[in-house]
Amino acid sequence: MSPREIAIVSYASLLAVPGEPQRDEVELLLPVVTEAVARSGIPKRELGFTVSGSCDYLGGRPFSFVMALDAIGAWPPIAESHVEMDGAFALYEAWVRLQCGDVDSALVYAFGRSTQGDLGRVLAQQLDPYTLSPLWPDDTALAALQARALLDRGRVSERDFAAVAARTRGGDADELVQRPYTVAPLRAHDRGTVADGAAAVVLAAGDLARKVCKRPAWIRGIDHRIEQHQLGQRDLTRSVSTALAGERAGVGKGPVDVAELYAPYTHQELILREALGLGEGVEVNPSGGALAAHPLMVAGLSRFGEAAERIIDGSANRAVAHATSGPCLQQNLVAVLEAAP
């Protein structure tokens, strides 16, 4: 049985770089959800399913996703779910939910105020609790190990890292590569700017998508793969989970116009490009990606939204959207979005 036709029909986001000093989560989220729903053309009360992605560790308080429901207006009661992950994985849950066939639309949203704590220390909590987490390695230290391994493989250089930064966040690669290391072999421009933000996407199935959107971004394939948690048990220079997810999503079945990749570090974009087989002709992260703004929990859903926007506005016919989770690209979700269903 082939999966039901599901499309992204609208997207909205709010990224506060380097951080939002005044608004709380609900105040960040409410205008974003309101805009995405309005742009979808589907009345809020008629949305069949709602699912969100967020993480209590970012704000240091439990059940923050329950408070965030103030931004949705969950009365009369709605069918609602939550993942303690990036909103892109909530989108995957919505896609699965819509496959059941009894509802035709879903609201997916994500919020994250990554600047409230020390993100490096927060991310150390996602590591193995016996052997790694008690050492408190921050995300930059682990990413630097991965970058070092990639350099040692010999096919890319630190200047290639700088070129990714220059392309997505401005600057001159030859000048950037002269700057001092933060954690060798990484420099400040190699790590995405920690930010606060919120994003929302509306999904619709079949005829409803065609009715409310002139050029829906049809999800032609979507797949999620996970690798070993322990960093020592995998080859950090390759992303086999991304390669497999990309293959199952059908990335190689046609030319790719644009790819939005969730790469919090410059060298990770190079690893992801290789895993997905994206050639020089593919426009990667025209939005600036997670390097320009990295609100945890939101950056992945933003990649899906940004890629979909390019289909919806007619500037691309085939796009790849990618989201990652876990240390050093442990989990990867890949989708192919197309103008033709």
Binding site: P21, Q22, E25, G60, G117, Q125, P129, Y130, S133, P134
Partner: peptide, 19 residues
């Protein structure tokens, strides 16, 4: 058994309305 204490510090914004 191991002891692995966790301490994380936050600077939380009350929000516009609550402020």
């Amino acid at each position: 058994r191991i002891k692995a204490p966790v301490k994380l510090d936050y600077t939380v914004t009350a929000g516009l309305a609550l402020s």
